[in-house]
Amino acid sequence: MIELKGAIALIGYGLAAIGPGIGIGIVVGNAIQAMARQPEAAAVARTTMFLGIAFTEALALIGFVLFFIA
């Protein structure tokens, strides 16, 4: 009785971007805490933060690519 019409790839990508968004927020938040608690370790924390961002963003980007394939 309820039909769904329209671009479901858009909704798919929107749902797929929730997880990495929260994940990157957690990573960067903890990195900022680490840098504030121990400023001498700020360089290591920054490097590891970029690493963490790259890994979690990969999932969002796979969703983005699949949006175009669908």
Partner: peptide, 10 residues
């Protein structure tokens, strides 16, 4: 009202 349009391709 039986058709729910989600994110119509404009």
């Amino acid at each position: 009202m039986d058709v729910l349009i989600l994110a119509a391709e404009a």
